[in-house]
Lab assay of single mutants.
Amino acid sequence: MEVRTIKVFTTVDNINLHTQVVDMSMTYGQQFGPTYLDGADVTKIKPHNSHEGKTFYVLPNDDTLRVEAFEYYHTTDPSFLGRYMSALNHTKKWKYPQVNGLTSIKWADNNCYLATALLTLQQIELKFNPPALQDAYYRARAGEAANFCALILAYCNKTVGELGDVRETMSYLFQHANLDSCKRVLNVVCKTCGQQQTTLKGVEAVMYMGTLSYEQFKKGVQIPCTCGKQATKYLVQQESPFVMMSAPPAQYELKHGTFTCASEYTGNYQCGHYKHITSKETLYCIDGALLTKSSEYKGPITDVFYKENSYTTTIK
């Protein structure tokens, strides 16, 4: 009895394709271990004539594949690729409408935090270190965002349907971005203890939790000093293409032309909904596939993004 075979390709990165001759009487799992086709788990399936010449994702289970996976995804987590594939199996079914010149995501599976993050990423200057993220990001900007969303979920250790947080998501993504040249110098002034300067680099240099107003941050924000008295913390120097200011959701007025974009969060910790506000020729609110415009805006804002380049204080 002759062994019926077909020729397929296996890959971990969709760049390096490895030619395989597979036995049609055995499952993919018996031949390769966990195997995925377009995100779908085909591990328990036997090869079919229609699979001839198709590319299958496999887990990096030998040295060659491990090197290829690390170079593309910059992670050695053995569960990463499987999590990416199972997320992709959902995100490829989502709709990605162009809204006001940006790629958004039609609401499904509690994905409003991903839509808000995706919209924000198209408006701030950011370059990702893992080629996987950078490639998928370019495709997302062009309207094909399924891979990018699935990668975000995998890097953030999230599953489809789980509630997510924009600030946490951005923080994970910033860790995989090139923020080497970003720098922030802060000064804390206390009447009792004097003053202390701190220099922050990388992710810490672009994120701040405690106030939404970048102007206020430049002037000074009140913080408790270690001595128990009130101290003032203010920005001395900022070198970065953008800054992200966050605070627990509270009524906040966004003035046209003073910011790049913002995240609105309605609801409580267990259950809520994100919308995205962007400042173009007027203010726009993007909620999944829905767009509304207004000249002014007041609502429960939790993150505001500002364009920056270089700032030095005039406070002496």
Rank of each mutant, 00 (worst) to 15 (best):
K7W: 10
F9E: 10
F9Q: 13
F9T: 09
F9S: 09
T10I: 10
V12C: 09
I15Y: 10
L17E: 09
H18L: 07
T19N: 11
V21M: 15
V22D: 06
M24R: 11
M24E: 11
S25V: 10
M26Y: 12
T27W: 08
T27F: 14
G29R: 06
G33F: 04
P34E: 15
T35S: 12
Y36E: 02
G39A: 15
D41E: 09
D41L: 10
D41W: 05
K46T: 12
P47I: 06
N49A: 13
E52S: 13
E52K: 12
N61L: 14
D62N: 15
D63L: 07
T64W: 07
E68H: 07
E68T: 07
E68C: 05
F70M: 14
Y72P: 05
H74R: 10
T75E: 09
T76Q: 13
T76C: 15
S79R: 13
F80T: 04
Y84P: 01
A87G: 07
A87N: 15
L88S: 04
N89L: 11
N89D: 11
K92H: 07
K92A: 09
W94E: 05
W94R: 04
V99W: 12
N100A: 14
L102M: 12
T103M: 05
I105N: 05
D109R: 03
N110G: 01
N111G: 00
N111E: 04
N111Q: 02
T116G: 07
T116R: 02
A117W: 02
L119S: 05
Q122T: 04
Q123W: 04
E125V: 05
L126K: 01
L126G: 03
P130D: 04
P130I: 05
P131T: 04
P131D: 01
Q134V: 09
Q134M: 09
Q134C: 10
Q134W: 02
A136C: 06
Y137V: 07
Y138L: 15
Y138S: 13
Y138P: 08
R139P: 05
R139V: 07
R139M: 14
A140W: 02
A142W: 11
G143Y: 02
E144D: 15
A145F: 02
A145C: 09
A146F: 05
A146T: 04
A146L: 03
F148R: 02
C149L: 09
I152Y: 02
Y155N: 01
G161S: 06
E162T: 04
L163N: 05
L163P: 14
V166A: 08
T169S: 04
M170A: 01
M170G: 01
Y172A: 10
F174H: 02
H176G: 01
A177K: 03
A177C: 15
N178W: 04
D180R: 08
D180Y: 10
S181D: 14
S181K: 12
C182Y: 07
C182A: 09
K183V: 10
K183A: 06
R184N: 04
R184D: 00
V185F: 01
C190L: 01
C190R: 04
K191Q: 14
T192W: 07
C193K: 05
C193W: 01
Q196T: 13
T198L: 13
T199Q: 09
K201E: 09
K201S: 13
G202Q: 01
G202A: 03
E204T: 07
A205D: 00
A205K: 03
M207K: 08
M207G: 03
M207R: 07
M209N: 14
M209Y: 15
L212D: 03
S213A: 05
S213C: 08
Y214W: 09
Y214T: 01
E215A: 09
F217N: 02
F217M: 12
K218E: 03
K218P: 01
K218S: 04
G220D: 05
V221M: 10
V221G: 01
C227V: 00
Q230C: 05
A231W: 00
Y234P: 00
Y234H: 07
V236W: 07
Q237R: 13
Q237S: 14
Q238D: 02
E239I: 13
E239Q: 12
S240M: 00
S240V: 01
S240A: 06
P241L: 05
F242H: 01
M244N: 00
M245C: 13
P248F: 15
K255F: 08
G257R: 06
T258Q: 13
T260H: 07
C261Q: 01
A262F: 00
A262C: 01
S263G: 00
G272D: 00
H273R: 00
Y274T: 00
I277F: 00
S279H: 05
E281M: 01
L283I: 15
Y284I: 15
Y284C: 15
I286V: 10
D287W: 01
L290A: 14
T292V: 10
T292R: 10
T292Y: 10
S295F: 08
E296W: 12
Y297T: 01
P300F: 15
T302V: 09
V304T: 01
Y306N: 01
Y306G: 01
N309F: 09
S310F: 09
S310G: 07
Y311F: 12
Y311V: 08
T313N: 15
T313P: 09
T313W: 11
T313Q: 15
T314H: 15
T314E: 10
K316C: 15
